[in-house]
Design a protein around this nucleic acid. Sequence first.
RNA 1: GCGCACGUAGCUCAGUUGGAUAGAGCACGAGCCUUCUAAGCUUGGGGUCGGGGGUUCGAAUCCUCCCGUGCGCGCCA
Length: 527
Amino acid sequence: MKDSLKKLIIESLKDDLEVSELLDLVEVQQSTTKHIKADYFSNIAMKLAKKLNKDPIDIADKIVAKLQSSEGLICEVAQPGYINFLIEESQKNHIIIDILDSEDLLTICKTKKPKKINVEFISANPTGPLHVGHGRGAIYGNIIAKFLQIQGHNVVKEYYVNDFGNQIKKLLESIFLCINDNQYKSDDLYQGDYIKTIATDVEKKFGKNFNKDTKKIKKYVLEKIMRLIQIPLKGLNIVFDNWFYETSLFENNLVINIINKLNESNQTVESEGAIMLKADEPRVLIKSNGEYTYFATDLAYHVQKMKNFDTVINIWGADHHGYTPRIKAGLKILGYDVKNLDIHLIQFANLYRRGKKISMSTRKGDFVELETLRKEIGNDAMNFFYLTKNKDQHLDFDLDVAVKENKNNPVYYIQYAHARIEKILNKIDGLNNYKFNPNALNHQNEKDIISQLNNFNEICKNSIIKLQPHIMANYLHKLAQDFHSYYANVKFLTEKIDYNKIYLVKAVQKVLKCGLDLLNIKAPKEM
RNA sequence: GCGCACGUAGCUCAGUUGGAUAGAGCACGAGCCUUCUAAGCUUGGGGUCGGGGGUUCGAAUCCUCCCGUGCGCGCCA
C-alpha cells in the first residue's frame, strides 16, 4: 500500500526536470495521529519546498492534481504541506482475503541473496550453569538466528566453548579443593553448590588425590558442566548447530598460523618479552610467559568464522563493547572485511528480588539459575518479557512481579485473543459457502483492526529484516488489544451470522499465530 | 579521567528513515458478566520526553554542553 502510493507520487513528479534528481526523497508514512482523517501521508512537498525555494502548499497541490485520477484514492493537502491519503474501505478491507489466501505471511521478508551466516551467542564460560544474566542474550540470539532463517539465509547457530585457559584451571582447582578441604574459601575460585555436586562425582570416579592436569579429568568435568548448561537451553528449545571448542583451535594449529601471519604483517611488536599487535592500541597476543591471550585465540576463532561464512554475527553482552575495536582491527590486519562482522551488544537486564538487586557471579556461586527462572515464570512469559524490549535498553526485571504476574502477564493477553477466536471459529462450519464482501465492514473496531492488518507487512520488514523482535512483540499486543475491544462490542454467533466478521477475526487469528510462532510463544486454542 | 550506551507517566517499557494534539502495561479511582471464556471491555487522574543551547517549516528523535545511571578501560576470559 505504502509502496504503491510512493510510486504514484514519483510518477507524478517524474516529468518535472527540476525534481527528477530528488525522487529518492519521496516517502510515505502511515498516519497515526487520531485527529487527522488520513490513512497515509507524505511530506515530500515540504522537503522539495526547501530545495526548490517554493511554497510547499503549491507543490502539494500540483502533485495532488495529478494523483486525483487514481481509483479508490482521495488526496488532500494540509498545512504546512502534507499530502494526506484516504483509501477506500473496500480496498483496505481486501487485506483480509490477502491474509487468508496467503500460504506464507512472511514471504515479504525473503531475501534475494541468501547468505551463509554464523550466529554465535551465549558462549558463557563452561565454569557453571547458565544464570539469569545469560537469559536475555540467549533468547535474543536465538530469535535473531530464526529471523535470519526466515529471510532465507543459511544460518548456523554456534556456542563458543572457552575450554582453554585460566578459568578452567580454576574450576578444576575448585573441585579439587572441594574434595580435599570442605572449608575452602577463596574469592578467586568457584564456590557454587554445583561444584559440590560435581566434586562428589569426581571423587567417586577418580578418588581424592587425582592429578588436576590430566585430560581425562578435564574432559569429565567439562562434560558435566556442559550438561548443566544445556538444561535451560533444552527447556527453552534453543538448539545449537555447532559447539565450537576453543581447544580445537590448538589441535589444528590455527592459533599459531594466525600469529605467524600477524608477524608477517609487520603489525606486531615485542615489548618486555611479550608479543603485541598494533590493533586499536597495542594488545598482547603472547604473554611474556609464552601463553596466548584470549585475544590471540579469539582472533583465530574469528578468522575461522570469517573464512567459512558470508556474515558473522556475535551476540555479546554490552560489557564487551570495549573489545570490539580490538577484534575488528585484528581481522582487518589479517585482510578480512569487517563489514561482514556484525556485533550485537545486548544491554544488561538487572534482576531484583524484594527490591534488591541480585548479583550474578558464577564464581561466588551467587546467582539464580536460568532454569529456576524459566520454571518459575514459564517459557512464554520469559520469551515475551525479553523480546518486548529493545536490546539497547537497560532493563529491570523484578522477580517478585514476574512471578506474581504469571497469571496476569501481557503475553496471556495476546494468547487469550488467539484462543477466543479459536472458540468462535470452532462453532462455525466454515467459510467455503460465503463470499467475503469487502464493503461490509464499517464498524470503528473493524476499521481499527483492518488498519492494523494492513500494517503487518511493514512491521515484518522492520522487525524481521531489521532484526528488531520487540517491534513484532509490541505489534501483536496492539492487534490483540484491537481485537479484545471488538470482541466486547460485537456478538459473532448470532442467529444470522455475519460471515464477513468471521473472515475478519480469522485473519486476525492467522496473524497472531504467525507472530507468536515467530517469537517462540505458544498460540493456544483454549485457555 | 577517557570510551560506549542509556535517561519518556508513581513503576516497567514502546514511540518505524525528524512529522500534525505523547503511547501501552502495571499500580490507583469509577463502571460493565442472564448473552461466543471477565486471563476481557469502558472510563478518569497522572508528562517542563533529565536540563540548557543549536539545526529545521517541524525535534522525544539530529548536533553541542551540563547533570544522572549502567558498562568498559588487564601480559583476565
